[in-house]
Write a protein that binds this DNA or RNA. Structure first.
Length: 335
DNA sequence: AATGAAGGCAACCGCAGAAGG
DNA sequence: GCCTTCTGCGGTTGCCTTCAT
């Protein structure tokens, strides 16, 4: 190593490309192919380093580049492959025709990664985060929801009126959501000892990715059972292909489909809406049905089909929160 | 309407590995 | 086998646009 960067050579232009430069590069490559990137700029009459030319070509000028928003299928694929491959952007890009590694990397860093973090998942391991600060947004949301519940039940008359005018149903739905949230946190605790995906040998990860793709990725239409979608190395991980797609047609949820709020209690609702979109978790309507019917007090039975947490949520009853904060009056009172 | 903050994206930088002599 | 050169990849930066106040 120790080789000086190619762009250190004096006089070479850096920064944004002009249309004229694009045209020169495009015409040269279309006519001659790129050949040696190092000699290309001189031959093409460009005052750029070869590296810059290659980047411009592969990330922007290449004719097969697909532009525009990522589709739901592409999002699912990225999430799934990232859970298996990690930050191997070029490998991930190889499975997404027309998408560049740079584009995928940017999309991950600006969208998907943030969503995982906001939902309390470690974006590197795709597992629920177990530290307190990761759960802080949920705690805040819980507090807000509790206030809402308390306000609704201020007086018996008010409470009865709420139930009559439909507000009671909303509260029941929110209670069901809350219980689901508790399940998530429980699964977080259950996966504390699990090893991170990053420890998986690269060839195993590649093989797993190939197997997953060859055997068919988790169908966005949900035609394949979520358990079948899990590749071996990510069997106890959360997102990957077990992420359900966003509710179809929810344009108001934002341009990417997956819904997130800006903070506070809205986050919880949005997160649940996303989870309930049709993947391995029951749709929100199911939760509300459970709430309206005979909602179990263990908080997890309503989501018994969930694959989250590697079985922790399905095999062990709650209470989860009192284990974390046994003396916290808010927790004990709320539960 | 102005201004600051945040988000999104294109491009750069430096490292690692492959290829060739 | 060693050294040099080239290519590709992942991380990071900085600019531009959009949004919020």
């Amino acid at each position: 190593m120790g080789r000086s960067p190619c762009c250190d050579e004096s006089g070479l232009k850096k920064g944004p490309w002009t249309q004229e430069e694009d045209e020169k590069l495009l015409q040269y490559i279309q006519k001659n192919g790129h050949g040696s990137w190092r000699t290309l700029p001189r031959l093409a009459g460009l005052n750029r380093c070869g590296k810059s030319c290659r980047l411009r070509w592969t990330n922007y000028l290449r004719p097969d580049i697909k532009r525009g928003k990522f589709s739901q299928e592409e999002e699912q694929t990225i999430l799934h492959l990232h859970s298996v491959l990690g930050n191997k952007w070029s490998a991930i890009a190889a499975h997404l025709p027309g998408r560049t590694d740079n584009e995928i990397k940017n999309f991950w860093n600006t969208h998907l990664k943030k969503r995982l973090i906001q939902m309390g998942f470690d974006p590197m391991t795709h597992r629920p985060r177990t530290d307190f600060f990761a759960a802080l947004p949920q705690l805040i949301a819980l507090a807000a929801l509790r206030d809402q519940l308390a306000a609704a039940g201020d007086t018996p008359a008010a409470g009865a009126q709420h139930l009559q005018d439909g507000a009671g149903v909303d509260l029941a739905i929110q209670a069901a959501k809350l219980q689901y949230l508790q399940c998530l946190l429980q699964s977080a605790a259950a996966t504390t000892t699990a090893s991170p995906a990053g420890t998986v040998a690269a060839h195993d990860a590649e093989a797993a990715a190939a197997a997953a793709l060859g055997g068919g990725l988790c169908s966005p239409q949900g035609t394949q059972d979520s358990a079948d979608c899990l590749v071996p190395v990510s069997g106890s991980q959360l997102p990957s292909c077990t992420f359900p797609e966003a509710p179809v047609g929810s344009e108001e949820e934002g341009d990417q489909g997956l819904s997130y709020g800006g903070g506070g209690a809205d986050d919880v609702v949005d997160v649940f809406a996303w989870h309930g979109g049709g993947g391995s978790l029951p749709p929100l309507a199911d939760l509300s049905d459970a709430a309206n019917n005979n909602m179990s007090t263990d908080g997890c039975s309503a989501t018994a089909s969930s694959s989250f947490g590697g079985g922790g949520a399905t095999s062990s009853p709650l209470p989860c929160w009192p284990e974390f904060f046994p003396d916290d009056p808010f927790i004990t009172d709320f539960l």
